[in-house]
Design a protein around this nucleic acid. Structure first.
Lengths: 341, 341
DNA sequence: CTGAAAGCGCTTACAG
DNA sequence: CTGAAAGCGCTTACAG
């Protein structure tokens, strides 16, 4: 499609040297004289030659490219993870090819099939919501394609993974509410069939238990996707209860924002009468009034760690001794006005 | 790295057929008997063969892969555009390799160099903030690498581009404020050396002119990056003026949100005493109270259109007759409570 | 309808 | 320090 590319052979003809010499000179191969290297590099610059990357990928069986499968790119958390992936990959000389599963199991399988065609040297995945069969990943493992999961991770599979400790984070958040004096603490939870949301709910429950606070089923509401609208519904549910909660820990920031707004409208003072903690440290948490206490979930670092881990596996010489690694990132409780008393 | 891949040759040996026959059978080539196709396909399924994509890319000089350069992935607008790009590319059988320029001219040039190595068949770009020299793109054009720009576009270059009409959109927004009765309308503008922000400011000015409203320099404030914090500063500036504005059109939603919050705190009623319109339809515009009127800037469609345009250029047989195309997407003024009287 | 052969542009083991 | 040769796994023009 473009006009004819310049090849190694063209350079070799121009200089009366073998193509192999040109190739080596360009790679600073030790067994080539400095003089030869110099004239080769000059000619290459003059003609604007760049080696054909596909040809050399083909020859080397190395594409220096990694695949990433996310549910949706336009979710802030994932866009931050991708940003961390790209940043780390770029510095290491890899490119990032990106796919959206749209939370569909079928599409995830299709993508795996495409990626398996060896265009990538390794894959980073956040599972689709629908996925609960992992055979497509097991196939990849057999072919020794390095694989790293982040955030949503296959339940009981020995895999490389990067995650935060959702249980601990939820425990910390709930404990914080207890320590500032809350005694009737509610939780807006994500879908309990998803591991991370179950862990957050369990962390909440564990904190209540540790401080001998009663556990009331009516104060733990499960949502399907932690949407703003679902948060509004939960907040109204709490408001309608005979005794109001004095603290709410929400499994994400969107639902926490709805709680803040609905209770504001009901003239219940935040944080004096109701303290609120969210989860994820979305940009909105610093904009809503009062600013929202939340858990920094380290999305950018998650992308970086996943990439580092993946690349280390790709470049590991002895593929046989590789063990699956699990990286747990430390989260941080950010205390802002919504829970500052 | 993986165990030995199965190749065409392996299949051909198993079936006592020539590799060329296998290759053709798999592509449903007309000159192969249905019977042969059937046995080939069965064997291929049995052995789990998939053709080596790199080898065929190398042979065909086609990677079916497009490159995308965005300033930063974790900006909502860009993540939406990328989402549109991925969606459209996936349906057309292309993959998307993504790079962040981090708004650096130097890095943008490096990326172009990497991409030029022919790993991609075409490129979609949103210029880095710093970029005002386009030589690196001109080089690509000479090599006939299809190129499409979106959002931030080289000033006076004949290129393929997808954008919205910023002037018209700003005009519409300002006109809306005038029609609901505002007479002292301010504008929080983006950096005026950037084309799109200049166009928005000009649209604002044109609307004032058309309706014979006075143009007061003190009511047009330029910011560097339309950040939330800059919005706060502008809002305070307006509040300190002897006569307050009764309408503000902001060049993005973040600054509009700051205006809403600062004026709320000063007990100025929105929309009764001050009407506000933002730009971009960020998720926060539907969360902040009162909900924000804004311009839907069609980010997802922008990604889709850019991809369609790029692919049409890639697949155009006769590369010589290609003219650069310019697609302008229609924006939509979304009226919400912040400007509903 | 099928096969033999050449070649895409590199890289590397081998030879000198 | 340099070169000749083989080959990565496909595809396609040519021949039959």
């Amino acid at each position: 499609m473009s006009k004819k590319r310049i090849t190694l052979k063209d350079i070799s003809k121009e200089l009366n040297l073998a193509p192999s010499t040109i190739s080596r000179a360009l790679k600073d191969h030790p067994g080539i004289s400095a003089k030869t290297k110099k004239i080769v590099k000059e000619k290459v610059d003059e003609l604007g030659f760049t080696p054909d990357f596909i040809a050399s990928s083909f020859r080397n069986k190395k594409t220096r490219s990694i695949g990433v499968i996310v549910p949706k790119i336009n979710i802030h958390f994932h866009s931050l993870v991708i940003s961390g992936i790209e940043e780390c990959a770029y510095r290491s000389g890899y490119n990032v090819t990106i796919f959206q599963s749209q939370d569909s199991y079928k599409r995830e399988k299709e993508i795996i099939k495409i990626l398996h065609n060896k265009m990538v040297e390794g894959i980073i995945v956040c599972l689709a919501m629908e996925t609960n069969n992992y055979d497509h990943f097991k196939k990849l493992e057999k072919l020794k394609v390095p694989l790293v999961f982040y955030d949503r991770i296959p339940d009981d599979l020995e895999v490389n993974k990067v995650a935060i400790n959702d249980f601990d984070s939820a425990f910390k958040a709930t404990e914080h509410l207890i320590k500032i004096g809350c005694r009737r603490i509610a939780h807006i939870a994500g879908l309990q069939s998803t591991g991370i949301f179950r862990a957050r709910a369990n962390g909440y429950l564990a904190a209540l238990k540790k401080y001998n606070l009663p556990i009331e089923p009516g104060l733990l509401l499960e949502t399907k996707e932690l949407s703003y609208a679902e948060g509004v519904a939960c907040a109204k549910n709490f408001l309608a209860q005979p005794e109001l909660p004095d603290g709410i820990f929400c499994a994400n920031d969107y639902t926490a924002v709805s709680v803040v707004q609905i209770f504001n409208k009901a003239h219940i003072k935040i944080p004096q009468e109701l303290a609120v903690v969210g989860f994820s440290n979305y940009p909105i948490s610093e904009i809503i009034e009062p600013h929202l206490s939340t858990i920094n979930d380290r999305a950018f670092q998650m992308g970086q760690s996943a990439t580092k881990l993946l690349i280390s596996q790709i470049e590991e010489e002895n593929q046989d001794i590789i063990k699956s690694q699990s990286i747990i990132l430390k989260t941080e409780l950010i205390i802002r006005d919504s829970s500052r008393r």
